[in-house]
Deep mutational scan, measured.
Amino acid sequence: TGTRRLSDLRVIDLRAELRKRNVDSSGNKSVLMERLKKAIEDEGGNPDEIEITSE
């Protein structure tokens, strides 16, 4: 578990975070980053400090 910047995430991490939020996880990295950023902002979170749970 740790905090990472949105830009540091790999595509696989972006998809996992989107799936956790029940958000569409298809598309390229830039699309996924925008989608995740919006989802985090909608939750009231900070997209520059994403809580990542290692699996």
Rank of each mutant, 00 (worst) to 15 (best):
T1M: 10
T1V: 05
T1Q: 00
T1C: 10
T1S: 04
T1W: 06
T1D: 00
G2F: 09
G2D: 15
G2W: 02
G2C: 14
G2V: 14
G2T: 15
G2L: 11
G2H: 01
G2P: 03
T3L: 09
T3P: 06
T3I: 15
T3Q: 03
T3W: 04
R4T: 13
R4I: 15
R4H: 08
R4Y: 15
R4K: 14
R4Q: 10
R4D: 05
R4C: 14
R5E: 09
R5K: 15
R5N: 05
R5C: 05
R5T: 10
R5A: 08
R5V: 03
R5P: 03
L6N: 01
L6D: 03
L6P: 01
L6W: 02
L6A: 06
S7W: 05
S7F: 06
S7T: 10
S7Q: 10
S7P: 03
S7N: 02
S7A: 15
S7L: 07
S7E: 05
D8F: 01
D8W: 02
D8I: 00
D8G: 08
D8S: 13
L9S: 04
L9C: 07
L9D: 02
L9K: 03
L9I: 04
L9R: 03
L9P: 02
L9F: 10
L9N: 03
R10A: 14
R10H: 04
R10N: 11
R10E: 11
R10V: 08
V11D: 13
V11N: 08
V11R: 09
V11W: 05
V11S: 11
I12C: 08
I12H: 11
I12F: 10
I12E: 15
I12K: 14
I12Y: 10
I12A: 15
I12T: 10
D13W: 01
D13H: 04
D13F: 00
D13R: 02
D13Y: 00
D13M: 03
L14W: 00
L14A: 02
L14T: 00
L14Y: 01
L14R: 00
L14H: 01
R15P: 01
R15G: 01
R15W: 03
R15T: 07
R15K: 05
R15C: 02
R15L: 10
A16N: 07
A16W: 14
A16S: 13
A16H: 04
A16E: 15
A16M: 13
A16Y: 12
A16G: 14
E17L: 11
E17F: 02
E17I: 04
E17R: 00
E17C: 06
E17V: 03
E17K: 00
E17Y: 02
L18R: 00
L18V: 01
L18D: 00
L18I: 00
L18S: 02
R19C: 11
R19E: 14
R19W: 06
R19N: 05
R19H: 11
R19M: 10
R19G: 14
R19Y: 05
R19P: 01
K20R: 15
R21D: 01
R21S: 01
R21M: 05
R21E: 00
N22Q: 10
N22M: 10
N22G: 13
N22C: 08
N22F: 08
N22H: 06
N22A: 09
N22E: 12
N22D: 12
V23R: 15
V23E: 10
V23T: 09
V23F: 12
V23S: 09
V23G: 11
D24L: 05
D24Q: 06
D24M: 04
D24A: 06
S25P: 11
S25A: 11
S25Q: 12
S26P: 00
S26K: 07
S26H: 09
S26M: 08
S26E: 09
S26L: 11
S26R: 13
G27S: 01
G27N: 00
G27F: 00
G27M: 00
G27E: 01
G27R: 00
G27I: 00
G27D: 01
N28E: 11
N28F: 06
N28S: 14
N28W: 01
N28M: 05
N28H: 13
N28P: 08
N28R: 15
K29L: 08
K29N: 04
K29P: 09
K29C: 06
K29Q: 14
K29W: 09
S30M: 14
S30W: 08
S30P: 04
S30A: 11
S30K: 10
S30E: 14
S30N: 13
V31N: 12
V31L: 12
V31I: 13
V31P: 01
V31H: 10
V31T: 11
V31F: 05
L32E: 01
L32M: 08
L32P: 02
L32F: 00
L32N: 03
M33L: 14
M33E: 06
M33I: 12
M33Q: 10
E34H: 14
E34T: 15
E34A: 15
E34D: 13
E34C: 09
E34Q: 11
E34N: 13
E34K: 12
E34I: 15
E34R: 15
E34Y: 06
R35Y: 02
R35A: 10
R35F: 01
R35L: 06
R35K: 14
R35S: 07
R35G: 04
L36E: 03
L36C: 05
L36Q: 02
L36Y: 06
L36A: 05
L36W: 02
K37S: 12
K37N: 10
K37H: 10
K37I: 06
K37G: 11
K38V: 11
K38Y: 05
K38E: 08
K38S: 07
K38F: 04
K38N: 03
K38Q: 14
K38I: 05
A39V: 15
A39G: 03
I40R: 08
I40Y: 03
I40P: 02
I40E: 03
E41R: 11
E41L: 13
E41K: 12
E41V: 09
E41Y: 08
D42W: 04
D42I: 09
D42R: 12
D42S: 12
E43L: 03
E43M: 04
E43H: 06
E43I: 04
E43R: 06
E43W: 01
E43D: 10
G44I: 05
G44T: 04
G44N: 09
G44Y: 01
G44A: 03
G44S: 05
G44V: 04
G44M: 04
G44H: 07
G45E: 09
G45D: 06
G45L: 10
G45H: 04
G45N: 03
G45R: 11
G45V: 06
G45Y: 03
G45S: 11
G45M: 07
N46W: 05
N46R: 13
N46F: 06
N46Y: 04
N46Q: 08
N46K: 09
N46L: 07
P47Y: 12
P47A: 11
P47N: 05
P47D: 05
D48Y: 05
D48I: 05
D48E: 15
D48S: 09
D48G: 13
D48W: 03
E49N: 06
E49D: 07
I50S: 09
I50C: 08
I50R: 08
I50H: 03
I50E: 04
I50G: 08
I50Y: 03
I50D: 04
I50K: 09
E51H: 15
E51W: 07
E51L: 11
I52G: 11
I52S: 15
I52N: 10
I52K: 13
T53D: 08
T53A: 06
T53E: 12
T53Q: 12
S54I: 11
S54T: 13
S54W: 05
S54Q: 04
S54Y: 08
S54F: 09
S54D: 12
S54K: 10
S54H: 08
E55T: 02
E55R: 04
E55W: 05
E55N: 03
E55Y: 00
